[in-house]
Design a protein around this nucleic acid. Structure first.
Lengths: 193, 193
DNA sequence: CATAACTGTAGAACAATGTTCTATACTTGT
DNA sequence: ACAAGTATAGAACATTGTTCTACAGTTATG
């Protein structure tokens, strides 16, 4: 009686995605290869082509998953719009620091021959809309007058993304990083009036 | 009489660097290969190893050159500190959009096996110091009270980098990009008080 | 001018990569 | 029990970074 070495179909897709995240978290983009994915997921290299559209298919799936998770992370709603706005800013950074692998695919590395599909970019746009909604709710409470919600959301996203990306790639000259990030969010809040 | 096919030593280094920038500007990181560099610079592939420390050596040189150029671009000094601060913000974006190849190496792509050396990171720190100086000069004029110049510089850099990097990788939902960028700089200026 | 030291070039070679193909063997549904 | 579907192993190919070697053009020195 020999133990089967064959992975059931339904376990392959999630297993490969989990392996991809692990590899990116621990080894970075360099380790993200077909053979490494197969080894870590315990499947044959061919599985990457049978269950995804090659390496790009895996990247596409993780790209979309990343923006969905980010969307959920910043979609905070209590009865205090301004507090929610600040919480979303903090949640953005937490997502990035806790999911460096996904963040790498989403923003920090252009993989060979990979271009996110329109469907994947739609997931990114939805995450952006969550920020727009925060600004709109603040404006309904009389805050942030005179700025377009879309522009304000882009400004916030830019600042948050810029901060965490500089942090992740090792070009951040702040000593107390949590405090400097808080200063940034407060500066934006005050700057929007 | 056959025309010489040999490139004089002194022309090789600058030629390879120029070729590298051209490749990154037109084809992106995927096209940045030893053989492509050699073809475009009109030298032998071996030149990349004789004149640089392989592909990483070329990246290192371009990384450092990028931060030096960025440093010069934001190092603006008139008799109006606040205007200089705003000009530096605009100059940052101009640098990025005009030098997408260099910007890619500096911030947008983790090349295989490439880690910038301490000397290269020093060039990055010097560029950061130029921003710190802007904030300090504003504070000498009574502006931006109550914020650490280092923190303020990190906040500004984060916002500017975040904005242009989202722009360069195609995840920017602003319609009038120049105007939104201006709104961001004004928001930071006002937010710092 | 002649000769030696240096240096750029061409081309082969190697391991690792993404990708495709084929034959085999396991699983599942009827 | 049997047929259809699917996961696997392994070979194969082009391209990549890198190293090595033999050769030829350039430059410095006598």
């Amino acid at each position: 009686m020999t133990k089967s070495t064959r992975t059931p179909s339904v376990e392959i897709t999630p297993g490969v995605l989990r392996a991809g995240i692990q590899i990116l978290d621990t080894e970075g983009p360099d380790g993200f290869t077909v053979r490494a994915l197969a080894v870590r997921a315990g499947v044959a290299p061919m599985a990457i082509y049978n269950h995804f559209d090659g390496l790009n298919g895996v990247l596409e799936a993780l790209f979309t998953q990343g923006f969905s998770t980010l969307h959920e992370a910043v979609d905070i709603r209590t009865d205090n719009p301004l507090a929610d706005f600040m919480s979303a800013g903090l949640a953005y950074r937490s997502f990035a620091l806790e999911n460096p692998g996904l963040y790498t695919i989403m923003f920090l590395h252009r993989f060979r021959n990979f271009e996110p599909s329109p469907a994947a970019l739609y997931a990114a746009a939805m995450a952006h809309q969550a920020l727009v909604a925060h600004v709109e709710r603040c404006q309904e409470s009389g805050l942030f007058p005179g700025v377009s919600p879309n522009d304000a959301a882009q400004v916030i996203w830019s600042a948050c993304h810029g901060y965490v990306s500089l942090e992740l790639i090792g070009i951040n000259f702040s000593v107390k990083r949590d405090e400097t990030y808080a200063v940034m969010l407060e500066t934006l809040r005050d700057g929007f009036g």
